[in-house]
Design a protein around this nucleic acid. Structure first.
Lengths: 377, 377
DNA sequence: CGTCGTGTTGAATCTTTAG
DNA sequence: TCTAAAGATTCAACACGAC
């Protein structure tokens, strides 16, 4: 845990393990990075402040308050200030990165465009942007925007012409039902037993990342024995996953509270054996097809009339993806319930198209769309 | 199709349709934008050059050549040159945008970070970043990166404090099986019969966007009759979808070949009828009905007791249109908040009448009054 | 031991109108 | 251009107690 190590330009294939390996360095990330040897790190994962720029409090519809990220470390005076901060830590990271090393940075639309531009300006070479799709994101409570259901990660090499960075293409493909791993990943946010909580039962860190996300990142872009650096260590997810996967880690963190929690967490991790390190991960099911998908894919057209199985009721499809009957518009479920006088209805089985083959439930069309999607992917 | 129209600052509610509506303007996009009146456009969709920075030709494993986007319009000498270009057209767009207008920009990791930063620097306010997940993306042939399976769109308002931009939240939600629309969208890329092809059988435009994508964008963020501008019109997907959905369009394009293809394509589009285009709206769009109107119309009488849904609280209606509980009188909202100990409350859904049918929210009475008003008018 | 109902929560740039 | 008031708004998990 001593940040003061002798500077050396050896590409870190030294025999004796460095003293800063598998430790958490307390302090400012730029200063700590500058005390590390150059070209000593294989992969960097960085989860910097997002610069959320929140206004006042936000209330849920039930009048409970949303626990906002309003910590002091997320406050920046301007885009210029945030850019200066971003450039500083990205430059310091680039110095400690091996020539064939890569960096991952995660962010939201508040900051990721600043980060991406800075990466390019500094000389990093973008390899991919990866979308983390959340299975269970927070809703948009006011109904004035789309639900913010993803975050973006940028994967970049140190230089445009960097050769030989690690990318375990074959392993990823094998783990992904023998098709290459895409740039959109589906994971739940970190909740339940994985989420670190203090004695008061409250979450230790406001933005703890799920281990599954880090596991895929490290399995994809590093090898056992590699050195993984996280300049915004927080609750230590990067360290915990690195240790479990047989990688070395270096964390940098300013807050003692986070350091203590991270160290205890990492100490409790049982590293996997060599055999188990081969491969993991897999595809998550995602069969949901909403009614608008049927329209957008051309299987149902605006103006078409839908019937129930006995032709007692009918409804007209509109371009916005709602259907119209009895003077009211709404979802296939709502209108299905309305015309029957019920509280609820499964519109997929209730409503039918009436074409040359006769009445067919619209659920049949959904099956076709699902088959198309499966064949295409 | 005359780019030279007289400059006017009228907010475009002029009686006679402007001559540039539903036309394709030939020329440089910044010059053409500067010839349009200020504050005249509701929604902009822009698909700018991606600045792809491709090195040499890309070969598939079978040594066939990938038909990369290497047109001259996609060549920029440096990030600085691309940024200057980006700022210029984004500034010109901002001038023609109505105060409550919004802009969509689509891009890939090559350019979207430059675009997003420029949007923020210029003063646009980011509303969402939307991920277009492709069901059938091009594979990564080299196996050195993740399959690039998505593109990113940024949705932004003209200013941070812009009020009243169009977002058809309720319709999107209804079409999405009654859950709010997320920021990750799944669509196939444009292929098959939809893809414009020349006499030689080759695709007319290298990056033709699918109509389904534009349809969701326009259904989400515009109304029938709105003006939709596309400064990089290309093969005219924006115009074709706008026409079909009953919106006006303005396209700007430099290449005569694209203009010809787009015009023929748009001319063949059959606009949908008014009924199919009606968008489902929620309570926000309903005329305001104050509580005292319920009393004046006899739907609620002074002295009646209101309850919350679980009969935990009650209040008495007074002749002046206030209600009384816990020793205080005030609006249905204020007293609803008071009895619950909250800062705010929607009294329309909180308070219920208790008559022969049991508890019913007073919002139901408001619906009846609205229906009466509609019938009378 | 389940099931059901209730309550809590997560990186959030989250309203509109009248006066 | 202010402020105050009206009024609109949530999805997937998890935890916990009751039964």
């Amino acid at each position: 845990m001593s940040p003061r190590v002798s500077l050396c330009d050896v590409p870190s294939v030294s025999a004796a393990p460095a003293s800063w390996l598998d430790t958490i360095i307390k302090g400012d990330c730029v200063a700590a990075l500058e005390a590390l040897p150059a070209h000593s790190v294989d992969v960097i994962f960085a989860d910097p402040p997002y610069n959320l720029q929140l206004g006042g409090d936000l209330m849920r519809p039930d009048q409970s308050m949303v626990n906002a990220v309003d910590d002091h470390w997320d406050q920046f005076a301007s885009f210029e200030a945030y850019d200066a901060f971003t450039r500083a830590w990205l430059l310091a990271c680039r110095r400690v990165l091996k020539p064939n090393g890569t960096i991952w940075v995660i962010g939201s639309y508040h900051n990721i465009f600043r980060v991406g531009s800075s990466l390019q300006d500094i000389g990093y070479w973008l390899l991919n942007d990866i979308v983390w799709r959340k299975t269970n994101p927070m809703p948009n409570f006011r109904g004035r925007r789309f639900q913010n259901a993803h975050e973006t990660m940028i994967w970049a090499s140190r230089d445009q012409n960097a050769k030989g960075y690690t990318f375990n293409y074959e392993a990823l493909k094998a783990a992904n039902d023998d098709v290459q791993m895409r740039s959109d990943w589906l994971f739940p946010i970190c909740t339940g037993g994985e989420r670190l909580k203090g004695d008061d039962g409250k979450k230790v860190h406001p933005t703890q990342k799920p281990e599954a996300l880090l596991a895929r990142i490290l399995m994809a872009s590093s090898k056992p024995g590699d050195v993984i650096l996280d300049p915004f260590f927080g609750s230590g997810t990067t360290g915990a996953v690195a240790r479990r996967l047989g990688r070395h880690f270096v964390g940098i963190e300013r807050e003692q509270e986070y350091i203590d929690a991270a160290r205890a967490r990492i100490d409790a991790v049982e590293p996997l054996g060599k055999a188990e390190l081969t491969v993991m991960t897999g595809k998550r099911a995602e069969p949901r097809v909403a009614f608008n998908v049927l329209m957008e894919s051309g299987h149902i057209k605006p103006g078409e009339v839908l019937h129930d199985a006995r032709r007692r009721h009918k409804a007209i499809v509109r371009a916005d993806g709602t259907i119209f009957a009895n003077g009211q518009a709404g979802s296939i479920h709502k209108i299905g319930a309305l015309v029957q006088g019920f509280d609820a209805c499964n519109g997929w089985t209730f409503w039918h198209t009436d074409r040359s083959e006769g009445l067919k439930p619209i659920d049949d069309l959904r099956s076709i769309v699902r088959a198309d999607m499966a064949r295409a992917s």
